[in-house]
Design a protein around this nucleic acid. Structure first.
Length: 585
DNA sequence: GCCGTTTTCGGCCCGACTGTTTTCAGTCG
């Protein structure tokens, strides 16, 4: 056995993407390059235990991974390294990958810059631009040089991806501006924002009108544009002051639905749908759908595109080519439609909220009032437990005082079921943060990891399993501990722990905080298979934070869930019964 | 490199914009 440790699935996906980029710069076949990107994506979306898959020799059972990539993956899992990987890496210096992140620079240009000027890093490229050495290259000029300098500047200022909460705010600004332009018949946000992805690269605003010029003018007049990157008749692109790219696409009203579908993506979903059209000799693009005679088929709404192709309409959130096309064809063949996904109105209350008792910004009464204002009929407070001293965790005495206050508040909110819980730290050995008799007095217990993030995988898994099996545990809070755009979750065997949660009837939290959105939507299918119950909880630290439920619902939709599959859509009586079910067979 | 109801070869989505070009390649989504 090698001393080198096995690579995780995430590391493998990242490496495959990198190798794809290296191949691209070194001039490999674009189809080979795409195969690496496809393979990375296929693996990312595959959920299960990779080590077992490798041991069973079934890696190629993942659609998009063939013999070549499977060989690499097997080496990474079993040996922790790969000769084939080293061969690819030796093709070009690794630092060239950074150059690809500069807007306007693709593999071909990076290759020229490297081969002609031996430039290998962003710093060297910047220097070369300043010395006007780039404009001398074939295919480059004065303008390219300036745009590269701008690109370097932007690269250093902005990381590239954005939280959904920020993206939605920016998108609204631009959408409002174009919607009010006379002659605009329809306007919508498309892209990954419409698909409810957990982070957003850039924003796509789509407008249907016969008069594109005033739309472009309105778009360009929105407050907070840092830079105009492209400005054409039907397509423009700006960089907002927040560092978010915003694309404007203008089409004639008759093409709005096909364009909305096209710009919603995903790319993979679109490719498959286009292939379906091609199979019958038809043509599908952002302007419409044409039959084998070249006659346009009417597509006033997205539904019509799918209908012509013998499919049920697919909710935008599910368009990731993860089986939704097959399901839509099946539904159509049975004259059925997609069951409506969960919506915000279905949520009847939440657990896991904080107050000034620990590190929240609003008092318990203010939080209850805000929950009532949102129309919820139950509310649970779950402040931090005593070990979380950094967050003002509650002592045993404070728990009793809080219970008294909650009793008082109950009198003023007779229409609400108010619950006292706690967010108990899972201690390093997997035990909870209070004696059993104290925990037993609470209505529910959320267990969460807030420390010792870097335990080895087996230890971390055992630690959390311990907590999940504790008789007082009702909810598993932010299961992986990831912080989007900041850090990955701790190393755990999530598949196993979800099965433990299912067995113990512990509710798994879908933490709705836009920086968490934890559990990841990709586990949705597995959650259903295992029969795990999910609860959408905002982890709110202010009254405003309660509204984050919006983002949790968005993720639940992306998981394909309807309201009957989310515990806090139950009415209060059912919900209390469900909380009492934990650990009972 | 992946895939296969045209299955071991020969395909692999396609259109807008930009900049550098005299008609198009590269990038991007």
């Amino acid at each position: 056995m090698s001393e080198t440790s096995s690579l995780s699935k995430d590391e493998i996906c990242k490496t495959l993407v990198e190798l794809g980029h290296i191949l691209e710069i070194s001039g490999s076949s674009p189809f080979k390059v795409r195969a690496f990107a496809n393979g990375a994506r296929a693996l990312e979306n595959w959920q299960g235990d990779l080590v077992s898959l490798v041991q069973d020799g079934k890696v190629t059972s993942i659609q998009g991974i063939g013999k070549g990539l499977a060989g690499l993956i097997e080496e990474w899992v079993l040996e922790g390294e790969s000769e084939a990987e080293e061969e690819i890496r030796s093709l070009v210096p690794e630092s060239l990958l950074d150059l690809l992140k500069i807007a306007g620079l693709g593999p071909k240009k990076v290759r020229v810059i490297y081969e002609e000027l031996e430039i290998e890093s962003v710093d060297e490229l910047e220097e070369a631009c300043q010395e006007n050495r780039i404009q001398a290259l074939a295919g480059f000029g004065q303008t390219s040089e300036n745009s590269i300098l701008k690109g370097i500047n932007n690269l250093r200022r902005f990381a590239g991806r954005h939280l959904v909460s920020q993206a939605r705010a920016v998108a609204q600004r631009f959408l409002d501006a174009v919607k009010s332009v006379p002659g605009v018949e329809r306007a919508e946000v498309a892209g990954s924002l419409r698909r409810n992805r957990e982070t957003i690269g850039d924003i796509d605003v789509l407008v249907g009108t016969l008069d594109p010029i005033p739309v472009r003018e309105a778009f360009m007049s929105v407050e907070g544009i840092r830079e105009v990157m492209a400005e054409g008749e039907t397509k423009s692109r700006i960089l907002s002051e927040e560092g978010v790219g915003v694309d404007l696409r203008v089409v004639e009203p008759v093409a709005f639905a096909p364009a909305l579908h096209y710009f919603t993506g995903s790319k993979e979903h679109n490719t498959r749908l286009r292939q379906r059209a091609r199979e019958r000799g038809w043509k599908l693009n952002e302007y419409g759908l044409w039959d084998e005679e070249g006659a346009a088929l009417p597509t006033p709404e997205e539904q019509d595109i799918f209908r012509h192709l013998d499919m049920a309409w697919i909710p935008p959130e599910l368009r990731e080519d993860l089986g939704e096309l097959e399901k839509a064809a099946d539904l159509h063949s049975r004259s059925a439609e997609w069951e409506p996904l969960i919506s915000e109105q279905d949520v009847k209350g939440v657990l896991h909220c904080h107050s000034t008792w620990s590190d929240g910004k609003a008092t318990l009464r203010e939080m209850v009032q805000a929950a009532s204002d949102l129309g919820w009929v139950y509310y649970g407070t779950a402040d931090h437990s005593r070990t979380a001293s950094y967050a003002g965790g509650l002592s045993i005495e404070q728990l009793a005082e809080q219970r008294a206050e909650l009793e008082e508040i109950r009198g003023d909110f007779p229409h609400m079921t108010l619950l006292q819980g706690i967010e108990s730290d899972i201690l390093a050995d997997g035990s909870l943060d209070y004696p059993d008799e104290v925990l037993a007095e609470l209505d529910y217990v959320v267990v969460s990891v807030h420390s010792s993030f870097s335990l080895p995988r087996a230890e971390q898994t055992a630690r959390i399993e311990n907590a999940l099996r504790h008789p007082a545990t009702t909810v598993w809070g932010h299961p992986t501990g990831r912080l989007l755009l900041q850090r990955d979750g701790y190393e755990i065997d999530l598949d196993y722990l979800l099965s433990v949660a299912a067995e113990e009837k512990v509710i798994v939290e879908l933490n709705a905080h836009p920086r968490r959105l934890d559990l990841d939507w990709r586990w949705g299918r597995r959650v259903l298979e295992l029969g795990v119950d999910i609860g959408i909880h905002p982890d709110a630290h202010s009254t405003q934070g309660l509204r984050d439920v919006e983002y949790g619902v968005a993720v639940a939709r992306k998981m394909g869930f309807n309201s009957s599959q989310v515990t806090n859509c139950m009415n209060p009586e059912e919900y209390l019964k469900r909380l009492n079910l934990c650990h009972k067979s």
